[in-house]
Amino acid sequence: MRTAILDVGSNSAHLKVVDLSAGRPIRTVLSVKRPTRLAEAIQEDGRISRDAVERLVSSVSAAHCIARAQGSAELIAFATSAVRDAVNRCDIVDQVTGRTGVDLGFLSGRDEARLTFLAVRAWYGWSAGPLLMADIGGGSLEIAAGDGAEAGTALSLPLGAGRLTRDHLPDDPPSRKQIRRLRRFLTTQLAEHLGAGDLSAGDLGQAEAHAVATSKTFTQLAKLARDRGPNGYRVLRLKALDRQIPRLAKRTATERAELKGISRSRARQILAGAMVAEATMATLGLTRIEICPWALREGIALRRLQQLRSGSVHQIDDIGHLLQPLRDAPAPIRSLTTVSA
């Protein structure tokens, strides 16, 4: 089964086309993306601006055409927290459907966490033992943990890098007062949610859990720190974050984009991303975290593969409402940017 997965995030729309076959690994056919810059387009009233909606519609239309041109039999299309939490999300979804024919759905934050954990477990296998996973998006922070194939605990907090930048670090570069306030806010929020039974160190035996991070934010922070573990994976250490945060704080977004590993599209929000990463690791008692290359899109592909293997909807059906068939393909268009699989 050739399946197209379209992930409309806070910064970009990312299309991943995969071949799924029972008894075989996932094969990536094509991976393309296009900037949407939704996080920076959320207005004071919580609405996404008209220009950003136009970018979103254009990106979805292009992705739809490419998915069909690649011979995809089905499409799984969803938007993450930037659209999910927008005041005008119903209007956005209506425009996308009416102008592109794509039904853009949503996953809950907890389901995003669970599906990302599924991908991390598949990447590391059973030998990794209990896993603790963290993912920083533009609008939310997902955390999941467990010693099985599925997460035993999963939660989503409104602590994404784009959201925190918009709400707490409006200046470029931010003032020391803004940074102090954000640090206090993160400490309070994480202590409240992670220390109140949602996910505590005792849930897994924290010292035994393999701590793993996904997302571009964690990846770029690890590149900035230039550190790798003994197995070759990129790692991010708490001490490195402590050193990099002052370095990022004194620079403008333009200056941050000149640092090795930091992309221009995330330069504005990478400081807030570093601060939430630091606060999360400190709250959970982690001195290091390893970067996993698989994340939410791979988790969705794995869930769909589970369904195909069983011949029916898997007992955990968190993606069924997102599935839609695709018909004969038009001529391909190339308005998205191809990225490495």
Rank of each mutant, 00 (worst) to 15 (best):
M1Q: 08
T3S: 14
A4D: 04
S10W: 02
S12A: 14
H14W: 02
K16P: 00
V17M: 05
I26A: 09
I26Y: 06
T36D: 00
T36C: 06
A39R: 07
A41Q: 11
S49P: 08
R55Y: 05
S61D: 11
A62D: 08
H64N: 15
C65D: 14
Q70G: 07
G71A: 07
L75S: 04
T80G: 09
R84I: 04
D85W: 00
D85Q: 09
C90E: 15
C90W: 11
I92N: 02
T97E: 15
T97C: 14
R99N: 07
T100E: 01
F106M: 08
S108T: 13
G109S: 05
A113H: 06
A119K: 11
R121M: 00
Y124G: 00
P130H: 06
L132Q: 08
M133F: 03
A134S: 07
G138P: 01
G139A: 15
S140N: 05
E150A: 15
E150R: 12
A154M: 07
A154L: 05
S156V: 07
L157E: 01
P158D: 04
P158E: 03
G160P: 02
L164R: 09
L164H: 06
T165Q: 10
P170N: 07
P173A: 02
S175K: 09
R180C: 13
T187L: 13
G197D: 05
L199E: 08
G202W: 07
A207L: 12
A207Q: 15
A209L: 04
A211D: 01
A211G: 07
L221C: 02
A222D: 01
A222R: 03
K223G: 11
G229C: 09
N231P: 00
G232H: 05
Y233T: 10
V235D: 14
A240I: 04
L241N: 06
A257F: 03
L259D: 10
K260I: 12
K260D: 11
R264S: 12
R268F: 00
A274G: 15
T283S: 13
T287R: 15
R288G: 08
E290M: 15
L305H: 02
R309F: 10
G311F: 05
H314A: 13
I316M: 07
I319V: 12
I319R: 11
H321Y: 03
L323K: 11
P325K: 12
L326M: 02
A329F: 08
A331P: 04
R334L: 14
T337C: 14
T338H: 11
T338C: 12
